[in-house]
Design a protein around this nucleic acid. Structure first.
Length: 561
RNA sequence: GCGCCUGUAGCUCAACCGGAUAGAGCAACGGACUUCUAAUCCGUAGGUUGGAGGUUCAAGUCCUCUCAGGCGCGCCA
């Protein structure tokens, strides 16, 4: 069995030898040989693979690219795998492979099933994806949802590409924001008990209604017993109750969204285990930290940052950055080869110092990759819905999930590059119609399942490949569909390499599109037996590819619609 | 003021390491259901890739400048 991937490797080898022959014959030393690459042409009619090697050689050899291309092609000569080779455009060499590949591709897809498209690209290396990591100071909003979807999909994509993946949520349960949360809850408690003057609402406090709900719950559990107590004595109760309850809600929302984490990592635990202190010692010992104006500074400028950053303030309190350095040190100490942080785009200013930290820790700065998630513009009936946790005006992830459904939400988040702003139209996402891409893809699956059900009712099964005549698949729609299926493994590798999960969503859409075109043009059942057999096999392969692509996105597709 | 992201068809978005004729969907217009699901398909129309220079055989992609939007620039997180 020849796989598509092997075909491209084979062609590359063939091409390299021919090009090398031609180039050295014209006096080029092997060291000057440009890299030979095969690419997928954009257009029909430009072959299955193409190479620009002749154009790259044109300059050093001082020759016309087209003539070089002709010469290379004649050196390659004939090969049973190749239907034809053409020289086209400014000097591209286009390869057209024989029909053998249809069999290979479909057979591979059907045989490998849930493993079709998996690769060993990651070579079992360990990667950690840390995402969402929202402060437990309020419910998750839509922006967190996007981060959750992107992080989760990136993680499963990498898993699929042969990495050993761990998903992690970093809980910012230390510091100022947590105090503010406790104070806000405390203030609402007294307000509800009509003694608001006991504890004024803090400036910059959390104003959302959910704080009142927390205060109400505390009244139900504890009654008014805190009224006569000093504020700082009751404070820990408010803070702990608020944080735990909110974090519980966050866990529930994420679980509902189909996102689960391997590790929930507490910022507080870094301090409790002395890891912040030891990270600071590490920096000091290596001369990356210095004292100035009573504070401890990290010389991040030595690693490309604009200015040095404070680790310990002159009042003795460590900064958020200090614990983040400790956290990332801890991550690498756990043995990850690659660490991916998924952040909101508003934190982009933080990237250079974090990269600097990684380098100071003795790691390659590329060992930390940061995905910045741009904002979500939530639309409803054409109007923008504003969001801000502090002001309490926001649409929660939960509300969106309840309204549009989990799969629609996930797919919408998957349909955009993460560094692109996202217009999320609630009306569109829940619309069961043609302009909703989620339904389009799911409908393709429903149609496939429908064919399978009908086949089963006629006692027809997907035949063994050895009894299928694949040369009967010669209609353009059949070939296009087979070709698309063939590309799935490459798409996975490409998407993983670029950390671009959105590619998988586009692939799923394109695959659905090719399937719909095929479905409309040809019947699978009720046609001549041998043709029917070949088409059913094709449909089964399409089912595998579509299922696997949606599996990476964790988007479910119903069997009937 | 400095930095990061974005700018592609009327709208929402793609476009691999720089490749050939910049692609989809929606909206518009015209067609296709006796059959396995028409939530679909086929066709038409729609573009100076914000603008100006530059590098290159080749630029949406790289460089410089510029315009517009978003976001950052703290001993906050």
């Amino acid at each position: 069995m020849v796989r598509m991937k092997e075909v491209s490797e084979f062609l590359k080898d063939l091409l390299l030898r021919a090009a090398m022959d031609v180039a050295t014959g014209k006096g080029l030393s092997p060291g000057e040989m440009p890299e030979v690459l095969l690419e997928r042409p954009r257009h029909e009619g430009q072959g299955d693979w193409a190479s620009n090697i002749a154009m790259l050689l044109a300059k050093p050899l001082k020759a016309r690219p087209r003539e070089l291309a002709e010469e290379i092609v004649s050196k390659i000569g004939k090969d049973p795998h190749l239907e034809k080779i053409e020289v086209a455009g400014p000097g591209f060499i286009n390869f057209f492979v024989t029909n053998l590949w249809v069999r290979d591709v479909l057979e591979t897809a059907v045989n490998e099933r849930e493993n079709f498209g998996r690769s060993s690209q990651g070579k079992g290396r360990k990667v950690q994806v840390e995402f969402v990591s929202a402060n437990p100071t309020g419910p998750l909003h839509v922006g967190h949802g996007r981060g959750a979807a992107v992080g989760d999909m990136t993680a499963s994509l990498l898993e699929y590409a042969g990495w050993e993946v761990e998903r992690e949520y970093y809980i910012n349960d230390a510091g100022l924001q947590m105090n503010l949360l406790g104070q806000s809850t405390q203030a609402r408690y007294f307000e509800l008990l009509e003694v608001a003057e006991k504890a004024p609402f803090p400036e910059n406090g959390y104003k959302g209604d959910y704080i009142y709900d927390l205060a109400k719950e505390i009244i139900e559990i504890e009654g008014n017993r805190f009224v006569g107590m000093p504020l700082d004595e009751s404070f820990p109760v408010f803070q702990a109750y608020a944080a735990n309850t909110i974090l519980g809600g966050i866990r529930q929302d994420l679980a509902l969204f189909g996102v689960s984490f391997d590790v929930w990592f507490s910022e507080k635990s870094l301090y409790e285990k002395g890891l912040v202190e030891s990270a600071l010692d590490f920096l000091k010992q290596r001369g990356h930290a210095y004292d100035k104006d009573g504070a401890l500074w990290f010389r991040t400028t030595a690693f490309g940052d604009d200015k040095d950053r404070v680790l310990v303030r002159s009042n003795g309190v460590t900064t958020y950055f200090a614990s983040d350095v400790a956290y990332h040190k801890e991550k690498f100490d756990r043995g990850f080869d690659l660490v991916i942080d998924v952040w909101g785009a508003d934190h982009h200013g933080y990237v250079p110092r974090m990269k600097a930290a990684v380098e100071a820790l003795g790691k390659d700065r590329e060992a930390l990759q940061i995905l910045l998630i741009q904002f979500v513009n939530l639309l409803r009936g054409g109007h923008q819905v504003s969001m801000s946790t502090r002001s309490g005006e926001f649409v929660t992830l939960r509300e969106v999930l309840d309204e549009v459904g989990i799969d629609a939400a996930r797919f919408f988040f998957a349909m955009r590059r993460c560094d692109s702003h996202l217009d999320f139209d609630l009306e569109l996402a829940k619309k069961a119609s043609t302009d909703n891409p989620v339904f389009y893809v799911q409908y393709a699956n429903a149609r496939i399942q429908s064919i399978m059900r009908e086949a089963a009712s006629r006692n027809i099964e997907v035949a063994a490949s050895s009894s299928v005549d694949f040369s009967l698949l010669r209609e353009p729609e059949e070939k296009a569909l087979a070709k698309r299926i063939a590309r799935f493994p490459e798409e996975v590798e490409k998407a993983a390499y670029e950390l671009a999960a959105h590619r998988i969503a586009f692939f799923a859409y394109d695959l659905a599109s090719d399937f719909h075109a095929f479905y409309n043009a040809h019947r699978v059942l009720g046609v001549e037996d041998e043709v029917s057999k070949a088409r059913l096999y094709l449909v089964e392969a399409a089912r595998v590819a579509l299922t696997n692509a949606l599996g990476i996105l964790r988007v479910k597709a119903p069997e009937r619609m």
